[in-house]
Design a protein around this nucleic acid. Structure first.
Lengths: 331, 331
DNA sequence: CGGCGATGCCGGAACGTTCCGGCATTGCCG
DNA sequence: CGGCAATGCCGGAACGTTCCGGCATCGCCG
């Protein structure tokens, strides 16, 4: 079994008594082949266990049948990205594409063209050298959220985070909060930047002082807890806390309990990214459902539309976001 | 820029005034090329922005330069797998390999050979049809943990879970627990099976009745909480709870607080898989650190050793596991 | 009956790389 | 000086596929 010589399309053709061209045409449904011989060829292919050689095919067609996927290497609270990945893969396999994961080691942009036909970058961070490199590649690039650098991808899938955050803040206000605070990542992420500026805007409109704390994008839990502690102790005094980083609001339990004596009763908590952790927190935490899996699929779909010409370079598509209200904001 | 014709190795050769063979030799460091002309060729390649065509290269070399990676599609509590993925990718890029994610849609085993040179399957579940298919492929397969089906992969990276669980149980006993309970997934996962049988063994040795509850491998939080509730109410009465599913112990808070009045003071909690969630739980939870990132890297390394012949088919490698003791078991 | 389009099939070139074998040229040593 | 090995470079074939153009054959219609 191990030393058998590979079965190519000419093997199939020979067994079916036709030429390689006819065999190729029959198996791919192109060209003109009679129904009878096509069946004969398909039978031969099946019997021989024929599998087309991808390298040869892609060499001939001048494409790779593969798209690259890059994500920020955030290890804690990775449920969001995991879902995103599965969304991309699912959509890609539906289009007969493979997905390979790209890291910093994948060489400069010029090298990429022969490895992938297109690129998806989830949450491109300004200043990330890998992202910088990938953005200058010579293949179509789709980002999830805008790139806060000076280059522009060929396609963007994004959500109306500003509006969603305002909706969340309005909800908090309705629920009785007068002065919500915010923990958020820095402006190197477009998402975090939008959340932050929407918050400031909303505060200004309501005549409130902004009470926000900025943490690194990939903060561990203790960093976020420290930020929360400082916010709770600082001025202005807050009666609600929105924690932006994915699912991190669920990690605030100890901090909140520790400060329970000094907190106003009915202190509210919410998250800008829903995850299993927020859903099953105690109490369950109100959050914005970003639907990462469909976001990933949407990125892949847009990329394929760009590849086939069905979408123009520069296209932006909106991905819906939904506020999920839970006990943490129902005093 | 978009319509420029591709620069191949003959373009480089022409610019450097040599033959394509010499250019190829110079760029890959093979054959005999004088230092002087090699530099000339490298300069030309750099200036032209030459990038070797992967499809052509792989067609010629009869390999794909890619390994496939399959994971159980577990979306909640995915920190473990995310780390595993990054470990695989990191090791693979170190060996100049790409990693593509494989799902059920990637066709039957025979098709695989032309897509990937090898396969890594993380936590192969018995009865998973995709895994079943992948295992019958004609490329080397490495699994993380043994496959509880009837096929045997070419390589296995596994940990001494039995011993580790016993160590954990011994620790609980030392910490005062007389009757620990267990929440664990079913035997379709080798890991869960090992944990479960090690637990039963340990119980028997200590003259204890086993108090375990089996849940699905990809259980959501509420399923696990229900299992915990039932264990706490049931017979025999337990004074410690080991929760096997990755990081799920951190999700038991509400259940434990709800049952606080009926629980013996000093009730202990531990997890068989350390994650950020257990580390930062309140109180921090004692757990077995499975080091998923190095486990992933180890799988990749073994696969490459199999591909190069540095390892024999049938090789099993052990991956170290470490008990991390935290406040949850220090009464 | 002659012409012509449709149908069914085929040969050969091309994609870009690697690798085998070979051919000069050079230098060394007896 | 003659032989022989080492050095530097090269031409062409091969990998497996797709695709362009072409060649019979057949049936239909004027």
């Amino acid at each position: 079994m191990r030393t058998e010589q590979p079965v190519t399309i000419v093997t199939v053709a020979r067994h079916a008594g036709v030429s390689k061209t006819t065999a190729s045409d029959a198996l791919r449904g192109s060209g003109r082949v009679s129904e009878q011989t096509r069946r004969r060829i398909e039978d031969a292919a099946r019997k021989l266990g024929y599998a087309p050689n991808n390298s040869a095919r892609h060499l001939r067609q001048a494409r790779t049948g593969t798209i690259g996927l890059h994500l920020p290497e955030v290890l804690p609270r990775s449920d969001y990205y995991m879902s995103f990945v599965f969304g991309v893969v699912q959509a890609a396999t539906g289009h007969d594409y493979d997905v390979t994961l790209m890291t910093s080691r994948h060489g400069r942009g010029s090298t990429l063209a022969s490895k992938v036909d297109g690129l998806i970058i989830g949450d491109p961070l300004a200043g990330d050298p890998t992202v910088e490199t990938l953005m200058t590649s010579n293949v179509p690039v789709v980002t999830c959220e805008r790139y806060p650098g000076d280059k522009t991808p060929d396609g963007v899938v994004r959500s109306e985070h500003r509006g969603a955050v305002r909706e969340l803040l309005d909800h908090l206000r309705t629920a009785g909060a007068r002065q919500p605070g915010l923990i958020v990542a820095g402006d190197e992420s477009d998402w975090a930047g939008s959340v932050h500026s929407a918050y400031r805007e909303w505060c200004a409109e309501h005549g409130l002082e902004a009470a926000s704390s900025t943490v690194p994008f990939d903060s561990t839990t203790d960093v976020i807890r420290t930020a929360a502690t400082n916010l709770l102790r600082g001025e202005p005094a807050i009666d609600a806390l929105v924690c932006a980083p994915a699912g991190a609001a669920a990690e605030l339990g100890p901090v909140l309990r520790g400060a329970a004596s000094t907190l106003r009763p009915g202190f509210l908590v919410a998250s800008c990214v829903d995850t299993p952790a927020t859903k099953y927190a105690d109490p369950p935490i109100t959050a914005l459902d970003l639907a990462p899996q469909t976001a990933g699929a949407s990125c892949a779909d847009l990329l394929f539309d760009l590849l086939t010409g069905a979408a123009e370079p520069g296209t932006e598509r909106l991905h819906p976001v939904r506020l999920t209200i839970r006990a943490s904001t129902q005093p």
